[in-house]
Design a protein around this nucleic acid. Structure first.
Lengths: 230, 230
DNA sequence: AGGGCTACTTGAACATGTTCAAAAACTTGG
DNA sequence: CCAAGTTTTTGAACATGTTCAAGTAGCCCT
């Protein structure tokens, strides 16, 4: 992230432009955090950053894109926070719980306005939806974390289930996030307790697939998921 | 719903007012369907209905409230559509599949703009969220349907699971709706196939709770749900 | 240095959801 | 039927996200 006086040859973005971009983004995020997404107007962001409104739109296609940029930041922070956990822990439960709790910790400062972000998650027309084409890279990165969670762990699973597991765990994370967004309890106790109790259950469930009866149904579930994926 | 020339004593609403309200709502719904939610402006609705913008706001607190009103309508239609199914079918699979497919059928004309509606589902600050305080009546009504699905069926379940089942099935419906909203396949084939294949699996899963090992984990899952509910 | 190119910046104009004070229409008690 | 009160209706004003034509600044080539 060095700023030089030379033109940045990649893209067409210059060092100065990059600086302005960062200024606008950091100002926006601070204001989102301090007074919420809804109460922060584009004019206010531009004013506070000392640029014109149009300039903000030069770098960010819309107000929602500012949120998207924040989300990318969050994902990066999460990836960092998760590394030591994946180094240290070997059991599936510890790895999975660690990853989910790390998310809660990283995202905590933004809990109040996170709801606004995940509003777009359910909107299939928004390019910011985690299921959209355009979010594919971020989604892949998220799934990759759970691939590591599964691979480095002590889980032994049938091949078909093992192949789908990372995506399933990512979906579980989405569900936790949805729960988290709605959690109004002090210190987010309910979400924390959900994670701490649900993960061991998932672990047990997964290990149950050794039983022939359970394995049969697990195979069918995996088959359904594969059939129904776009 | 008789319209008389006498003042409606309840509330303070008159017959004429009710007529205007309906006019605005039906106009809005038609336009939502025809050109989508986003492209339908409040001015256009008012213009088409032959009233002023302010008048629309007299009856509906916001544009989203117009959608909420539509949702209520949908729920009512679904309840009606479901009745013959619950009369005729006795097996859990048939009942559950019927109820879910009935939803798809009732909601189909609005598929394109439904996404906008369920955007609000993830927003904890919106009173229109299905999880919010204000949606409690609609949510209860929805859960009630699944209570009937379970009670009238041939399922035999442990008491604790049986008690939580309606709410769990309602959650499943929410998941199906989320999937449906994102489904771009022709004739919504993917969602239909999801329902047709997932319900039998759920059936099998539920019956597996007779096995002691599975029953143990099922009990724990139910315990977790109860603990984590607000 | 100057011309030309690109990147950047501006601010006014626009679109649209929302509010509100005032007017109109209606109802009711006398 | 009138006056007072209530409900309904209006339309202009407002707030805010977004667009865009025009201007500015920096860089490079000759």
């Amino acid at each position: 992230m060095e700023v030089t006086t030379l033109t940045d040859v990649t893209d067409g973005a210059t060092a100065k432009g990059e600086q302005t971009r960062e200024l606008i983004l950091s100002t926006a995020l601070r204001m989102f955090r301090e007074q919420g997404y809804g109460k922060t107007t584009m004019r206010a962001i531009a004013g506070e950053a000392g640029v014109s409104v149009g300039n903000a739109y030069y770098y960010f296609g819309s107000k929602e894109h500012l949120m998207q940029a924040y989300y990318d930041l969050l994902v990066a922070q999460h990836r960092e926070a998760v590394e030591p956990i994946l180094q240290a822990e070997k059991s599936f439960t510890a790895r999975m719980t660690g990853v989910l709790l790390a998310w809660l910790e990283v995202a905590a400062p933004y809990h109040e306005f996170a709801g606004t972000f995940f509003k777009t998650a359910a909107d299939p027309n928004s390019p910011l939806s985690p299921f959209s084409e355009q979010s594919a890279p971020a989604r892949e990165a998220g799934i990759e974390i759970f691939r590591q969670v599964a691979e480095g762990s002590d889980l032994k699973l049938p091949a078909d289930l093992r192949a789908e597991l990372p995506e399933l765990l990512w979906l579980l994370e989405m569900a936790v996030v949805l729960f988290w967004v709605h959690d109004k309890s002090p210190d987010l106790r309910r979400t924390t307790s959900l994670v701490n109790r649900a993960v061991p259950l998932v672990d047990r469930l997964l290990r149950l697939t050794r039983l022939p009866v359970v394995r049969g149904i697990a195979t069918d579930i995996v088959g359904l998921i594969k059939a129904v994926k776009p």
